[in-house]
Design a protein around this nucleic acid. Structure first.
Lengths: 339, 339
DNA sequence: ATGAAAGCGCTAACAA
DNA sequence: TTGTTAGCGCTTTCAT
């Protein structure tokens, strides 16, 4: 019962032209007599013809497909927004998104990348995970630039678009010290992730610069709500709890806040200041009212769009774009007095 | 600098076989001498060859690409999870996801579907929006079944996998009546969306069945947090506010709750019971502790997987799969006493 | 401005 | 089991 799809040949016959002319009618840059083009497009509509993008891709060696690889799309509550904004922007540019998810349990980036490359994607956007360097080089070599989001890969040919995590850490350090905190803890996410270590680095370095040496570090197992809950129990249910905690990600802060407030009966921000990182959509809701560093998602999207719109053969290689985060002052942390 | 990608011909030469044999080496069902296959795969690895999936797609008339169209991916906080689970599951089946977003402002489904079809997707999954019936029929006709998620399209060839919204509404009605509520309001989302109207229908019908005729309906403009906030102000800041509100979606309930609690000083659930629909990840957090109907996402994913694994030529047409939601009893609504 | 012919990298049908 | 030959639907020369 499956009717064969309509091809450009069908349209050509119906319009009384040759098949390549039909093809040209769909290319702005091809010179086709306006009348011919109009007739072709009309016939095409009648037959409900849609150009076969796959065939075009094979012929042009260019598919207008961008691969996006996302690790842990949902747990952090941050990447869905990133994905949506990327997809919408890329669609505007006439590109489509082929989505791949990787998760600790199911699959690693390196297993999946060869498959992605097989789709002849024009470029590869990879969020919050780090592919092996051989595959980075191979991808670049065949003209498919890799763009890492929130990872840096100095010394490789991968490009990076990244929130300035170090500076974000610095901003939080200043804010907490200015507010007069005496016992400050950094709650880490995944230990070996570069976002985590850069935020920590910027944070602790600044604290030390200002003579505060007593930072304690607490390891969360993972960027997750439950990890934040557990950390709260370990950190706060003690004789000498911290009076301020900087969490490596908002989702950790949510768990920490909920457990502190509803399980341990701690007053926020009177007894404890909590600051996160990302500015996920729920952070602004009064239920959390989380002071946090906002990642500049729109700017990141624009930066990627720019990298992708380089002329053919001039694909970006090894470029790094660092974009500043912004402190969103809300109610979960004491505010420095104005003097 | 861009080296040409390695093709099966390169591998064939290097391995001393013909090109189709290389192709066969990648197909489990093709009979290739084990030794030959091993040698080919080894050579392929050395040359870092990856089969060109686009060319394969053209040749096989089948791309193993599934198009997913998502409307308003992020605002509801519900669909990211859906997307991740679908993507992960489809990857397991050896299929890839081509993602399209549509949003009220940017683009409609019907504009975008022809493009999607151009990618020769094997099937089309469409969430929370309804394509025009001509395009549904066309897609089905060319053998690319359409699967609607959370929409019903009786009388068309589209398939539907849907939470039983009517029954969900019924469950909530019973729960609220059993808890003794006297003044009940339904807070609607997008007026003309079928999820909304079915939840409302199931809810109000059941109330009436049980002799409760005094349901008021309040129109939210949209499935969004802010819409919930505004509804709270309209509904609750009055002389005679409702004592229970059933929200068409969790995200509405969050806005309603926050505004009720933090802006209007209303006690939940003492003065007001709030129930949502979806069970988004934040619903269970103590900050909201939202009683809600859980959509059976895993089951929905499995249902779709089943529809997609029908043998060639037996694509599902016009099938509807209704899956029951489950009431998650938490703290935002009074619980019926046990008698 | 348009047509004819070749080719993108693969799979399918047919031989051998 | 393997090689040969077509052909998927398009774009791209090269003619005209």
């Amino acid at each position: 019962m499956v009717k064969k799809p309509v091809t450009s040949i069908d349209v050509a016959k119906a319009a009384g032209v040759s098949q390549p002319t039909v093809s040209r009618a769909y290319d702005e840059n091809s010179s086709v007599a306006p009348a011919t083009r109009a007739r072709i497009l009309e016939v095409a509509k009648e037959l409900s013809y849609n150009p076969n993008v796959i065939a075009r891709g094979l012929s042009k060696q260019k598919t207008d497909i961008i691969g996006i690889v996302m690790a842990n799309l949902t747990v952090s509550l941050f990447y869905p927004e990133v994905l949506e904004k990327f997809t919408t922007r890329l669609q505007q540019m006439g590109k489509q998104v082929l989505l791949f998810t990787v998760s600790a349990e199911h699959s690693s980036v390196d297993e999946i990348l060869p498959r992605v490359l097989g789709y002849q994607v024009d470029a590869l956007i990879i969020t919050s995970t780090m592919p092996g360097s051989e595959i980075i080089e191979e991808s670049t070599r065949v003209g498919r630039p890799i763009i890492l989001i929130n990872r840096l890969a100095p010394g490789t040919s991968a490009n990076a678009v990244c929130c300035d995590n170090v500076d974000g850490g610095r901003i939080v350090a200043d804010f907490l010290l200015d507010a007069g905190h005496k016992k400050i803890t950094y709650l880490a996410g995944v230990e070996y992730s570069s976002t985590n270590s850069m935020r920590e680095q910027g944070f602790t370095r600044r604290l030390r610069e200002r003579g505060f040496t007593n930072v304690s570090l607490e390891q969360g197992d993972y960027y997750s709500y439950d990890s934040g809950c557990e950390a709260a129990r370990r950190l706060l249910d003690t004789d000498d709890p911290p009076d301020a905690i900087f969490c490596a990600a908002d989702i950790l802060a949510l768990g920490l806040l909920d457990t502190a407030k509803y399980e341990l009966g701690i007053k926020v921000p009177e007894d404890l200041s909590v600051i996160g990182f990302d500015d996920i959509p729920v952070a602004r809701m009064p239920a959390f009212d989380l002071t946090t560093i906002r990642q500049p998602v729109d700017e990141m999207v624009e930066a990627v769009a720019e990298l992708l719109s380089r002329p053919d053969g001039e694909s970006p290689i090894g470029e790094t774009i660092l974009l500043p985060g912004e402190l969103m002052i809300r109610g979960s942390a004491k505010v420095p007095s104005g003097d």
